[in-house]
Amino acid sequence: MMEARRSHFWRSDGRRLSGLSTLLLLLPFFALVAFVFVYPILQLLVISILEPHPTSENYARVVENPVHMRVLLRTLWTATLVTALSVVLGFPVAYYMSRAKGTVAALVAVCVILPLWSSVLVRTAAWSFLFQRNGLINSALMSLGLTSQPFKLLYTQSAVVIAMTHVLLPFMILPIYGALRSIPSDYARAAAVLGATRLRTFLEVILPLSLPGVVSGSLLVFLTAIGFFITPALLGSPQEMMISTLVSKQIREVLDWPFAAALVGVLTVFVTLLAVIFSKTLRFDRLMGNAS
């Protein structure tokens, strides 16, 4: 299945390039990735186990110190929460999008795709305006008489979860939309002809067939959320760090490279393992609008 799909993706019929030309065309790619991606990551991993001397100490500090352990657990919990919220908010949008036609479809698509291509900093800044003491949310709550005191919203974990869900939601919607679009419309009609109600058709036909999209979207959101830096750094509380903000602190303030390298090692290995386990479901090309 995967083989067939892969060979379709890299469809190569007709006259082949010679081995030498292929190699020359691929050389800049491999050289760049080796130099700017593989080497720097490997160097960090090496530092994490060799400095100050060959040791597992750096990793022990990650798991044995309860403060650091809490950062890891908070990161996992936040990413899980963001993923769950994204499914709940994103699935109906993807479903609606897959059924919509004409102007409505275009409108929904713009709402989903425009944020994806706009700056993460812009979206995070917008939330920091909204969450301020005298920001829109507190003004609205107070003018509605729901509260007399403004809430502390900025620099809380809730702010981080809400803003991260906002930023990552398109990563959930697009893969689910892709999966829903690939379900032949005959299936729903066949179920209806056989007497299934619309709810039953949805539960027994559409939902199971859309699950690969849900898994793919969830992984994309979860993997991105785990290492997310900008939003926790700007909206989160310094007392409730995530792994990325802890790494940044180790490097910018504490200058503890071996420990920072071990944190990056934990993060990278965990994320890579997940990606390898689920490699068949991850479809990054869908983010570029390839619905097939």
Binding site: F37, P40, V247
Partner: peptide
């Protein structure tokens, strides 16, 4: 190698490149 830079968190790559 193509997917790697999207999978590996940007913070990891950023720190690695900062050092390198």
């Amino acid at each position: 190698l193509l997917i790697g830079p999207i999978i590996v968190p940007h913070i990891a790559l950023a720190v690695g490149l900062y050092l390198f």
